[in-house]
Design a protein around this nucleic acid. Structure first.
Lengths: 217, 217, 217, 217
DNA sequence: AATGAATGAGAATTCATTCAT
DNA sequence: GATGAATGAATTCTCATTCAT
């Protein structure tokens, strides 16, 4: 389940994974955030180095190639950054609740709420991940974080089913559906001007509460 | 002989909408199907005319430009074709059921089942639609079919809520969630080799049955 | 000064110069007029077969290739047609005057006036001729008519100089200047909406009357 | 970070208008001169990036796109360069004369004489400007210089008419005629091998001296 | 550590022309 | 006589990446 060793290639792909100076890290962060901005605004397809460099206020695309091993490397960093931000936002909000139902509700509402705090982040990541293909060599690295998060969710659901809090269902299908529903809602929130994200978050939480809870009250 | 340039351009956007030869229709269909294949396999981003032409067994990309007014025109046709196929597959399966619950179930199962019969179609359309941006001029034309289908579903749900068959919820959020869940499941089906689409379809149907039905039996 | 014999090529270039059926002639005329229209409106550079065919109401560009040996052939016909029309318009108006001065004035005013009667013709021809290059094989054929008309004018001027009606000057430079001034004025007339062509014609005639007449009244 | 897309595009039309490197400036000049060469020799229609790149000794057309925002940008620069050269050649020669007649004569002779010093420049510019159409978005930018130069000439003529040095005539028609005559003569000079440009310049100057001067000495 | 210049492959599209029917 | 289909070369332009400085 981890990034196994097609390693020679794999390691080269991430530039200097250790030992990075401060300015280098700052530059990378600057570029990553510009990339998130551009991807969210113009879509992955139009997120060329040229456009990202312009957004970041850099004079040439060479700058980006200098700091990242390639487009894959940059995109990996985009996904990692968004994952980091999302986790920092969602996890605490889940942990202040108890019980599987309350936590699922918190997860969904926080995920949608994230779109209010960081409107570009989730759409950008969704767009990047949507472009991964089976044959893409960076696929495993990129999906690692996301997949393992999903695995955690699946495991939590299984536990809630064993405890009787959730009814019987295929947890993988459920997790897929929840993820997809959140993403679609966040995307709509970004597109439709007057969209009430908080309300939609509550609606989604209700939806999946009904979908998951066991019949016996 | 008058200033006709504006409307001329406008009309050209869709090439010769009426009166098409038999061979032309055949070629167009051949190209559209090749496009669906390529988009599903390699993604919209890599679905260049060159690749589509190769898939279709054509000697040059000029052929595609000859039969379609542009990439937009081709993509519009891809969406239209998939919509046509999907409707022909799903609608009859819904109509042989009665009651909102049974029909919703039929809709979901048929939609996922479609992935068995036409594994490339839905993923291709999803990919095309995902690339539409707000500023894209072809946006409205392409989304017309899809949006109006969603509107119909929303209206059906409102009715089922009035009749007491469905509980109270925001039907737009629900429709968005259902569509997203189906799409994500179909996409997974296309990617994961041993994926049991029929079972996943039943699971999804259960999920949204629980999510929509009113508490009082 | 005539079309000499690079003949094999030259003869092939003009399709079936003799023995043309009535419908063929009609089709050719239709296409030539469409070409004039398009060249005047959009410029020579954008006067593709596709655009001309559309203007002519033809369904395919093949039609044009069928009736003309090539683009050169069509353009030659455009020049010939405009020359024919111009001559038919200008010559009678010159011949009803006597004296070199009156005739020059009539020539200029009629040439500019032609722009009122056939606003597209002269601009189209100017544009076609402007695209001829020295190495262009169709150059001689196309310029034949035009050059010989210029030669006639030069000769007339020489005569008027001998008779004392015109002052001494280089008649070739004068003819070049007159032609260029007429063309530029006609072009302006086509472009500027409120342009008073008749007045400009009289101004031009005055201009070249002053420029040519001998001092002694 | 705001909606900057509109203005960004707008700005891009002219690439990096300020702050250009030395080598960049050199490359641009090299390309512009190659373009002038090609346009004069082969015509605007055949002045493709490929041909210009070959003339400039560049390995790829991408180079040109790298240094210019597009074909418009390059052509704008061609016009600007020729204008610059022409002004530097003509103005001093006018300023060492006094009186409207002498200055007009100097203007015409210098303009034609320019063809001796820079035989390709004027024909290239004429060809570029001839391809501008009313609907061309780059029209204003390109014609700005040229039109304003014409306006200055018109104003000068009006003054000379008030002072009695020039007879009464429509100065716009006159300026148009002069410009057209110069251009046609320069074009002929470029085409006809033995053409005596200096003599033709004197002839043209005579011509317009007669055409403009007032009768009373 | 940074940068501007260069590269060459690949993109969509338009073009005049040919050909079988 | 006429037509629609096909062709393949050529067009401008964008792209990620490399390299010398």
């Amino acid at each position: 389940m981890e990034a196994k060793s097609d390693s020679a290639e794999q390691e080269e792909a991430v530039k200097k994974p250790s030992r990075r100076t401060f300015t280098e890290a700052a530059r990378r962060a600057q570029i990553v955030n510009a990339a998130i901005e551009v991807i969210a605004d113009a879509g992955y397809a139009k997120a060329s180095f040229a456009r990202i460099a312009r957004e970041a206020g850099l004079s040439s695309t060479g700058m980006i190639s200098y700091h990242f091993a390639g487009k894959d490397d940059l995109m990996r960093e985009v996904v990692a950054e968004v994952s980091r931000v999302a986790e920092a936002y969602v996890l605490p909000r889940m942990e202040e609740r108890t019980g599987a139902r309350a936590r699922l509700r918190a997860f969904i509402e926080a995920s949608v709420g994230l779109a209010g705090a960081y409107p570009k982040h989730l759409p950008a990541m969704i767009d990047v991940l949507a472009h991964l293909r089976d044959d893409d060599p960076s696929r495993h690295g990129l999906l690692g974080t996301v997949d393992s998060a999903a695995d955690v969710q699946v495991e939590r659901m299984r536990e809630a089913q064993r405890s009787g809090e959730f009814r019987e269902f295929d947890p993988r299908v459920m997790v897929t559906a929840i993820r997809a529903a959140i993403d679609a809602t966040v995307t709509r929130a970004g597109r439709e001007p007057g969209f009430d994200a908080a309300a939609a978050g509550r609606e989604l939480a209700d939806l999946f509460d009904h979908a998951t809870r066991s019949a016996e009250r």
